[in-house]
């Protein structure tokens, strides 16, 4: 019951971990990704990615700028141009 989540910027691999859920600020609205999500691809707008490491924990936020998110069989990959914090 874990979603593999990767956050990558041109400069480095920021995060690669198994988490419960990630909420991504998509270009057409925020969307949450849980394990077993259907293949999906979206551009993202500037905003914060919320990472829930467990079902009832409080989220960790990472601000990103420009990029896109891809959900595939291997998990969620967010390619962002800039990352803060």
């Amino acid at each position: 019951m874990a979603l593999h989540f990767e956050l990558v910027t041109p400069a480095q691999l920021v995060r690669s971990a198994d988490v419960h859920m990630v909420v991504v600020p998509g270009a057409e609205g925020e969307f949450g990704v849980l394990e077993g999500h259907a293949p999906f691809m979206s551009t993202i707008r500037d905003g914060a990615i919320k990472i829930y490491t467990s079902a009832n924990g409080s989220p960790e936020e990472i601000k990103v700028q420009g990029g896109f998110a891809e959900v595939g069989a291997t998990g969620l990959t967010v390619l962002a141009e800039h990352v803060e914090g």
């Binding site: 270009a27 057409e28 259907a38 999906f40 691809m41 979206s42 595939g72 069989a73």
Partner: peptide, 8 residues
């Protein structure tokens, strides 16, 4: 074989 959804 997976159908990928795109947004936009």
């Amino acid at each position: 074989g997976a159908v990928v959804e795109y947004e936009p």
